[in-house]
Amino acid sequence: MTSDAAAPSDFKSALLKEIPKLRFFALSLAGQQDRADDLVQEALIKAWAAQDRFTPGTSLRAWLFTILRNVFYSEYRKRRREVPDTDGEEAARLFSNPEQNGHLDLGDLKAALATLPEDQREALLLVGAAGVSYEEAAQVCGCAVGTIKSRVNRARKRLLALLGVDSASEFGGDYLAVNGASAPLELA
């Protein structure tokens, strides 16, 4: 056992564990990593102050995501009133952290994601990318589980059409490798 003063609280450890997913969700909302981390920072401060209001046994993840989302939309709406933003600019900002653009060829995916309606993109990124459960995503977005499922499905179909991956002729070896795998990855 380490020295008693250094032992982190359970709540702190639980928050730390959720930070990678929180950062991703924040990035999907804010577009840029530094702004996303501002959002995470503010959400953590609010969560810490409100920790007595968290119901043990419920999903901490859904609770944190909801706080972060509320922070974003309250600020976003404010900013939108101040600086009108066109869809084009929004799209260009999506996932625009430089580290990601260097070594990963996800440009097409990002561009396609940027064209999705906001609610569909959010549902797909929560469930299909971050691995958040349908139930948690429904709690975060304040809607029914069935609504999340239908948003995810519509988002997938639209992305597949945009990326041209529903026509087999346009696939390269990457597709064949995935398709040929014995256990196809579940999209969740």
Binding site: L16, I19, P20, K21, R23, F24, L27, Q33, D37, V40, Q41, L44, F95, N97, E99, Q100, L104, L106, L109, K110, L124, L125, G128, A129, A130, G131, N153, R156, K157, L159, L160, L163, V165, D166, F171, D174, Y175, V178, N179, A181, P184, L185, E186, L187, A188
Partner: peptide
């Protein structure tokens, strides 16, 4: 109506997008 192969391909790409952020070390400021 979604072909399993195409869905799987998209799933892999989405997870890659996620991992690009999630695999980064947590910033010191947090």
């Amino acid at each position: 109506s979604l072909s399993p192969g195409a869905s799987a391909h998209l799933g892999v790409q989405l997870r890659r997008l996620f991992n690009a952020t999630a695999d980064e070390p947590i910033p010191a400021r947090l």
